[in-house]
């Protein structure tokens, strides 16, 4: 069973940290990623550029509409994600609880619907 762990937080928060604190958080992320890779949970993951770099696309009546910014303005933004293998929700939640920014942001845990992908 796969889960997507979506990492939400206030983007402005990062800028309030000192360089040293940012370094510590980066280190924590690296340690966490390495640890879930070794335990066999990690299937993928990425950090995202902030929502100011986001572009939202819609097609209505065959017309493409492209707008600057995320699809919804929210207090907390999606900043990255992990794709993990876990045997059930409890295990996925336990992994989510170890992501460093869970302490100031929130992690949304979403079960994945498996589809065969063309390779």
């Amino acid at each position: 069973m796969q889960y997507l762990l979506l990492i939400y937080g206030n983007e402005a928060y990062w800028g309030t940290l000192s360089e040293k604190e940012q370094g510590q958080v980066m280190q924590e992320y690296m340690d966490f990623t390495k640890s879930i890779a070794q335990s066999g949970h990690l299937r993928g993951g990425n950090e995202l550029h902030p929502t100011s770099r986001a572009t939202t696309v819609r097609v209505r009546d065959k017309k493409r509409m492209v707008t600057d910014g995320p699809f919804a303005e929210t207090k907390e933004q999606l900043g990255g994600y992990y794709l993990v293998e876990a045997k059930d929700l409890d295990e996925a939640v336990a992994l989510a609880a170890r992501i460093p920014s869970v302490r100031w942001g929130a992690i949304e845990v979403r079960p994945i619907i498996p589809h065969d992908m063309p390779s």
Binding site: M1, D88, L89, D90, P111
Partner: peptide, 14 residues
């Protein structure tokens, strides 16, 4: 069903 909430008595630590 879809999020696989386990059907079990939680382990001691929980």
């Amino acid at each position: 069903r879809d999020a696989h909430i386990p059907y079990r008595v939680p382990p001691q630590e929980e």
